[in-house]
Design a protein around this nucleic acid. Structure first.
Ligand SMILES: [Zn+2]
Ligand SMILES: [Zn+2]
Ligand SMILES: [Zn+2]
Ligand SMILES: [Zn+2]
Lengths: 159, 159
DNA sequence: ATGTGTAATGTTATACTATAACATGTGGAA
DNA sequence: TTCCACATGTTATAGTATAACATTACACAT
């Protein structure tokens, strides 16, 4: 699981996520159907976010469906069960890098290469919790997205 | 300026924000034109987020324009100059409650009554800065949105 | 094996959000 | 006056997401 933008064995990311999803579905009696599994695989291919219609066009070439509800239902399932996240800033979706753990993910989004790295910080959760409590607000979900420039693209820009 | 959901003299919110916008525009040679000013006023009416097409329909009844670019241009201006923010989670727009100050706003969004409260915390900026620096990431913009239930709606739910 | 209920998928249509592209007007500076 | 920068008007279209209803697949009780 990458905690940043460094190189890593991405095959492991994919395997871990799929195994975790299978296990969780088995435990909870959820069905990781063909379409749902394929969408998760597509999201896992890279640490990028994919638009619903990008995914749909791949599904279409693979004969898994051609209409928007196909992909939105699969995405709803994956997001509802913590296997993927929606990146609000991009209207796009990204596989979860910390499956199985309850978490308030933080996304770093590179404006240039579209890389999306998911990290998670306990202090941040605590801090938002404190902020919310001070206002009497009950937290249900958090969206924390940082847009900027990843290490690779920063180097490229200074050339 | 509210820092939470408590009652407050909202007339002051509106006046402060408008005055601040006028001053900033005067300083920077920006034009707070009729449409732009009106959109800002609409966003200031309540601490809620308004969709672009909601705003547009009001503009339309007032003879200020009926086509989407009218409202999106005004919103772009207001957002670019820090007079308003886009709430990504809602695809909606909200007047800035801390105009004039460079800030990384935090929004608390009530899922029930759609109230949007903007707060701002220096420690949070520091946290995110630290997280980003650890990954070599250069921050350009942040989206921090908390969805949940405001004090009023919590009380209503327990009835 | 047969009905029954639930979950998933198929299909059509439509709603909602946002921008591209080009024309026109407006007001100040050269 | 001419030019330029900016704002607005207008038409069209792109991009994102859901409603609604029909059909299928399958587990499970009868
Ligand atoms: Zn995650
Ligand atoms: Zn990058
Ligand atoms: Zn603000
Ligand atoms: Zn509320």
């Amino acid at each position: 699981m990458p905690i940043g933008f460094e190189q890593h064995d991405h095959t492991t990311c994919i395997q871990t996520a799929l195994t975790s999803a299978e296990a969780h579905c088995a435990d909870e009696g959820l069905q990781l159907t063909k379409v749902r599994r394929r969408v998760l695989e597509l999201l896992l291919l890279e640490h990028k976010a994919l638009g619903a219609y990008d995914i749909l066009s791949t599904l279409n070439t693979e004969g898994l469906g051609s209409q928007p509800p196909i992909v939105y239902r699969a995405l709803d399932f994956l997001v509802a069960n913590g296997f993927a996240h929606k990146i609000e800033k991009l209207n796009a979706y990204s596989a979860c890098c910390h499956p199985g753990k309850s978490h308030a993910p933080v996304f770093m989004i590179c404006r240039t290469c579209q890389a999306v790295v998911e990290t998670q910080t306990e202090p941040l959760r605590n801090f938002l919790g404190t902020t919310a409590k001070a206002a009497g607000f009950l937290i249900e979900r958090t969206v924390i997205e940082i847009e900027g420039s990843c290490p690779t693209c920063q180097k490229a820009e200074t050339l």
